[in-house]
Amino acid sequence: MSNQSSVGDRLIQLIADNTKLSADDVSLDLNLENSGLDSFARIELILVIEEAFDIEMSDSESANIATVADIVNLIESKVS
């Protein structure tokens, strides 16, 4: 749980640093499809996340992401 939380905290900061959203706007429940980020910005964000966590997400995995928590779960499954 603490590991997930640290991944989540790091991810939230990463999203805030690389999008127009502020850290206060981003939570695990935030649905990126409703966040105002267009598809282009979301793909660029996925690349930033891949590089930061040294993982690779397939097109299907990228497309299945809705919330920030979905990304946390995906990262957890890939780094564990």
Partner: peptide
């Protein structure tokens, strides 16, 4: 209208 402005509005 911008993502940032929309998030502020939401808050």
């Amino acid at each position: 209208v911008s993502p940032q402005r929309i998030m502020q509005a939401q808050a």
